[in-house]
Amino acid sequence: MFGYITPDKPDLKIKEFEVFRGYYCGVCRAIAKRAGHRGRFILSYDTAFLALLLDSLNSSPVSGKPGRCPVHPLKKRFIVNYSDVLEFSSDINILLAYYNLKDKWQDERKLFSPIGLFSLRRGYKRVKKKHPDLVRDIEKGLSALNELECGRCGQMDEASEPFAGIMKKVFEYSAECDSAKKTLGWIGYNLGKWIYLLDAYDDIEDNIKRGAYNPLVIQFQYGENENIESFRQRVKKEVEFILVYSLSEMEKAFSLLDVKKNHGILENIIYRGLLIKTRQVLEMGAGCDEKPL
């Protein structure tokens, strides 16, 4: 995934920040357990959010303890205990990182990809065996995405549909009842849409230079000699509308969710973090520099 889903750190309480980091470290540890230590490099904020959101639906208090890890050997940190939710989130992280690397290898032939692929392969196979339906749905979505890209789809809504659909499946997968499934699904759908389009906007410059596919470049008809920065400014308003509207729909679904704990962190992400990230990418185009916590 892309690491766009982040909290607004200065607005978090220190306690809340520690819990958020606890989930982040928990997912990281779960990945290491299932895909080896090299797997830790694929960790993403987005799956930490997935773990946080899904775990907040359980009424049991956050359980975890201070621990050390090879990445930060000097200081003990609060790490959330291993659970079904962490296992699922790390599975999703492994899965998406695997597809991402595979895609990169096919598109760009980057040298490090086969090494990464090799170390993730074992984890990927294990996940596929455990959630065959989900993996099938995701792969169906990815091939639909691929088809749209090959057909050079020039419509934001249509282009973002497959990825939004994948996220819908991921979020609703472990829901216990129908209403939770619907709500989580709508959260996932809209987040997926937001992530895909935010990434597309973030990549405009890169994609134009490399001549790679970008739905925005096609929809808003980038002219050959047009200045890239002025193109970004030209399309900003339309892109901002769909990004913020997706977030507002996601917020509505979130309001209906029966959240039992971690209210502060979740609200921080949903009402501030995502908006700030949107603004950052739209204004400066510096969104994807994911730094570990």
């Binding site: 509308f241 913020v244 509207y245 977030l247 507002s248 917020e251 609200e267 009402y271 501030r272 908006l275």
Partner: peptide, 20 residues
């Protein structure tokens, strides 16, 4: 309704509440 929802979320009190 569409534009109200857009502006409503964009200027939500949580986002604009704390002024740092």
């Amino acid at each position: 309704r569409v534009s109200n929802q857009y502006y409503g979320y964009r200027h939500n009190p949580y986002y604009h509440g704390s002024g740092y």
